[in-house]
């Protein structure tokens, strides 16, 4: 049996990748199971998906805590979440990155396959959707599954969801990524900081969870506490502001869904702790004082 954890962002299709791998295993006569991390998924927010494969029927229904393989759809996630959680020295990583394996630091030095899946996807699909290409890299790096089976799994899962034609294109993307995958060893110097979670006993938990603002050992909870949640990490693009063009009309301040553009009287200030990079401010600026650039 082997277990795989996929790290992606909401909207990147990590779940479809996990399912296509299960389907690929099925094609080879194995038993493949794929499941999401059960929760509310928001676009851009870090998400998880899992695949479990064995020769025989899998009865285990628990989540995966110590995966054999970790697949990272977006190398910026390495900065955000503990991708090394539960990994052992014999684990293997597959990463979408422009860097070489040796340039990556996953917090544990393990065998690592790298492909610039974003470029592959742009080339083959015309869109930066990496969930199919990364599977090609998985086949190449791990040898657990043949690239032909990956192609079959993608045709099956993607084909049913988004149509035969797109399924075929995604299979091509996986093959292209397979050819371009480089395998080496990543570095393991990073100390991953895991955000502490507030886990009160039933007695510490306010009755019925009716909660007032409180400072806990894991930060603020209750009314107004979301301010502790730095959503800036979701960003792909960021606004660049030209003070000279700004007429202080405050439209960007008003329209910002995050409320993270502040009016400092002389200029507008952007709070990148929270900016998700939606681009509404740039789109609505009557003076074109804001431009979105790749972060």
């Amino acid at each position: 049996m082997y277990e795989v954890r996929f790290h992606g962002r909401g909207g990147q299709g990590a779940v479809m990748a996990a399912q296509a791998l299960a389907s690929a295993a099925h094609i080879e006569g194995n038993y493949g199971v794929a499941f999401p991390f059960f929760g509310a998924e928001r676009r851009g927010a870090p998400v998880l998906a899992f695949t479990r494969v064995d020769k025989d029927r899998i009865y285990t229904k628990t989540q995966i805590y110590e995966p054999d393989y970790v697949v990272i759809l977006d190398d910026r996630l390495i900065e955000l979440v503990n991708v090394a959680q539960g990994l052992k020295e014999i684990a293997v990583a597959v990463v979408n990155s422009q860097k070489k394996p040796e340039e990556l630091d996953l917090g544990i030095p393990i065998k690592t396959g790298v492909v610039d899946a974003t470029s592959v996807a742009l080339e083959v699909l015309g869109a930066p959707i990496t969930n199919s290409s990364i599977l090609g890299a998985f086949a190449k790096t791990t040898g657990e599954v043949k690239i032909e089976s990956i192609e079959g799994g993608i045709r099956d899962i993607f084909g049913h969801r988004i149509g035969e034609e797109l399924g075929e294109k995604n299979a091509k993307a996986a093959r292209a990524a397979y050819e371009k995958t480089e395998v080496g060893t990543c570095r393991g110097e990073r100390k991953m900081e895991v955000k502490k979670q507030w886990l009160p006993t039933y007695k510490e938990l306010p009755l019925g969870a009716a909660t007032r603002p409180m400072q806990t050992d894991a930060g603020l909870v209750g009314p107004g506490s979301f301010i502790d949640n730095k959503t800036g990490s979701w960003r792909t693009f960021k606004p660049v502001y030209d003070k000279d063009k700004c007429n202080m009309c405050r439209f960007c301040w008003f329209y910002c869904p995050e409320g993270c553009i502040y009016d400092k009287k002389e200029e507008m200030v952007f709070d990148f702790d929270y900016c998700k990079g939606c681009g509404i401010c740039a789109n609505e600026c009557p003076k074109e004082a804001i431009e979105m650039v790749r972060d």
């Binding site: 851009g44 979301f226 301010i227 502790d228 409320g259 929270y274």
Partner: peptide, 24 residues
Amino acid sequence: MKDLPDEELFTAGHTACPGCGCPI
């Protein structure tokens, strides 16, 4: 719009998708 208070009673850090119209 100029008269609106700066204080946010609905704070940043919420988890709406980027570009969501609702939090506006």
